[in-house]
């Protein structure tokens, strides 16, 4: 740091980047009832699946930014600098509707990536009994998502492909179970085909099953219907969706042996960086923890305990 004689918070030799940067919308793609918004973000570090960013349209009438999971990342194209970061946005309230309408060239404040991610490394270090490590020939990773909860898992599948290429520890098989409310929500599916095909080409068993609540797209039912058919002893599971869905998924996990599960949970946030204490939710042991700092990814045990835990969360992302 420079001597403080005249420093009014500005410095010619900045020792680091600013926390909030202005990104630019480079692509907006409607996927049924959702929008995939791609923002060119300067100075972005590579995100891990489950991490989020606080984003807010420059000039928005909404006061606070909103938290969105990182959906995918692409390198900048020729003539651009930064990273192309995609977010999946579902209409929840005025702020999300505003972002969905943002056109190419719109400026967006971005703070991120933030929060605790899904952690394949921790998973692959864990023992699954009798000294055997997870990641062996029979090991499976189940991805379970509802609606816009699919967002973090596109990045996960892309990172998984990187792990296969790098011969890093990973599951022998990945199974993606996606549940949708209706067929417009299911339009997000298309984005998942390429990374699944890539995993398949790399020789990893990768499969996706979908189900739709109102029967307007394929099989009718809830994602937990799929899960109850697919879940086996010893599976690892990453889940993102509505709180009630996460609880139901955890309840199912408890009916099998040695299933480890992690959940990306949601709460209304103001700052996203641990300051305001606004996004707390109760854990199974009664502690209040911040979704932005201690989460958003929690293990099933810490979030829900040995059995389902009644947990009320304020509406996020309006």
């Amino acid at each position: 740091m420079r001597a403080d004689a005249d420093d009014r918070g500005r410095s010619d030799s900045d020792p680091g980047r600013d926390p909030a940067v202005v990104g630019r919308v480079v692509h907006s793609r409607t996927l049924g009832s959702m929008v995939e918004l791609t923002v060119l973000v300067p100075g972005w570090r590579a995100a891990r699946s489950g991490e989020f960013a606080m984003i807010r349209l420059v000039g928005s009438r909404r006061f606070l930014p909103r938290a969105f999971s990182v959906h995918s990342e692409r390198p900048a194209e020729a003539g651009e600098s930064g990273t192309r970061v995609a977010f999946l946005i579902s209409p929840v309230g005025p702020a999300t509707i505003e972002l969905m309408a943002a056109s190419k060239g719109s400026e967006v404040w971005v703070v991120g990536p933030l929060g605790r991610s899904f952690d394949i490394d921790a998973l692959s270090r864990s023992e699954i009994g009798a000294g055997e490590r997870w990641g062996g020939a029979g090991s499976r990773l189940l991805i379970v998502a509802g609606g816009v909860g699919a967002a973090p898992f596109l990045l996960l599948l892309e990172r998984l492909a990187d792990r296969v290429r790098a011969s890093a520890p990973r599951a022998a098989e990945v199974l993606v179970l996606l549940g949708f409310r209706d067929s417009p929500q299911a339009a997000v599916l298309d984005a998942f085909e390429p990374p699944l095909a890539a995993l398949d080409a790399l020789g990893m068993r990768a499969r996706m099953e979908t189900i739709c609540e109102d029967g307007s797209f394929g099989r009718e039912g809830l994602v937990t219907d799929l899960l109850s058919e697919e879940l086996s002893d010893g599976d690892a599971l990453f889940c993102c969706g509505a709180h009630a869905m996460c609880e139901a998924v955890w309840d199912l996990c408890r009916t099998r042996e040695a299933v480890r599960a992690w959940f990306s949970l949601e709460a209304g946030m103001a700052c996203g960086v641990g300051s305001c204490q606004g996004c707390v939710i109760p854990m199974a042991d009664g502690r209040l923890v911040r979704v932005c700092r201690e989460g958003p990814v929690f293990s099933g045990e810490e979030a829900f305990g040995e059995s389902g835990h009644p947990c009320v969360v304020g509406g996020g992302g309006s």
């Binding site: 740091m1 918070g9 703070v111 933030l114």
Partner: peptide
């Protein structure tokens, strides 16, 4: 109550050149 310097810095990353490091070395507030 609106700004927790250490929490924000950790959230933003404490690596070299990361935004959290800068916040601790040169806090924006007087």
């Amino acid at each position: 109550g609106t700004f927790d310097l250490f929490e924000v810095a950790e959230s933003l990353g404490l690596g070299e050149g990361e935004a959290g490091t800068r916040l601790l070395l040169d806090p924006p507030f007087a």
